[in-house]
């Protein structure tokens, strides 16, 4: 069996006395798509941010493409290598792009930085990446203000792919899109994986979207993994009560919303395990 492309072992994050991620372990095989499902405050985004180095890791280890990335990178070269291995696409395409940069320039910048592409080849590669995510020539020349949410998210995906990563982390990347546009971007994600062989770590609260995009899934609650396995199996016959609750809360015709017996606690930052 080949080495997994990404391995998280015992990942833990605490802020002061509050533990937001507690002993989270999973592996992502090369070419696989793994979902992380959970509600707000479950720690799923913090896991992603620790993997790409946007948060320091309190305990545990992360290994990507055969090299350890638990500690912050010591040198620019190391940081750049890590950036080449794992890229991330964020939720809000209105905030994650530079408003002064055209779509093409945003993609070209990453190409020059990471792939050490010769200047002559940059334009060609920008076109190829734009093709891959379904952006036309006019859109490549546009600034974000002239692009719709779906188009912006395509730019963000193309930009992440420009580094030629092994792993693409998608953090609620289709959550803000309208249904018809979301379907287009989900199809694009399927095409990209088929053509490039990139692995996805797909973070979402939307069970139907997760079913469409991922092979396996881990379910998180209050910073810990409560259940994991093949996506179809977990969604068809969830064994953990929390997964069952999640599944039962998805509206459908004939659905009768029902009260939980447990009342909402007052707002507390994350879950405390102290």
């Amino acid at each position: 069996m080949p080495e997994p492309i990404l391995r998280a072992a015992g990942l833990t994050k605490t802020y002061g006395r509050t533990t937001v991620v507690d002993d989270v372990s999973f592996v992502l095989e090369a070419g696989e798509s793994l979902g992380i499902v959970g509600e707000s405050g479950s720690g799923k985004t913090t896991v992603a941010r620790m993997i790409v180095g946007l948060e320091t890791i309190t305990a545990g280890t992360v290994e990507a493409c055969g090299s350890d990335r638990t500690r912050p990178a010591r040198s620019a070269r190391e940081r750049r290598r890590r950036g080449r291995d794992v890229q991330m696409v964020f939720q809000d395409p209105y905030q994650s792009l530079d408003p002064r940069q055209t779509a093409g320039a945003a993609i070209a910048e990453v190409l020059r930085h990471h792939a050490e592409t010769r200047t002559a080849d940059v334009a060609r590669q920008v076109r190829e990446l734009a093709d891959l995510v379904g952006l036309d020539e006019r859109q490549v020349g546009s600034r974000p203000e002239n692009l719709s949410g779906g188009q912006r998210q395509r730019v963000a995906i193309a930009r992440a792919l420009a580094a030629d990563p092994q792993v693409l982390i998608l953090d609620e990347s289709v959550a803000a899109l309208d249904v018809s546009i979301q379907a287009q971007v989900l199809n694009t994600l399927a095409d990209v994986r088929e053509q490039t062989g990139v692995s996805y770590l797909f973070i979402s609260h939307d069970l139907a979207v997760v079913r469409q995009v991922t092979d396996r899934v881990v379910v998180m609650k209050d910073g810990t993994i409560v259940e994991s396995g093949a996506t179809a199996e977990i969604l068809d016959s969830p064994s953990h009560p929390y997964t069952q609750l999640l599944r039962a809360s998805v509206p459908r015709p004939g659905w009768k919303p029902r009260h939980r017996t447990r009342r909402e606690p007052t707002r507390e930052p994350g879950a405390s395990h102290s």
Binding site: V179, A183, L186, N187, A190, R211, Q212, V250
Partner: peptide
């Protein structure tokens, strides 16, 4: 266009 909770299709 909405993905299904109970099954997948290769393309939506």
């Amino acid at each position: 266009a909405r993905p299904s909770l109970t099954g997948t299709s290769p393309r939506l």
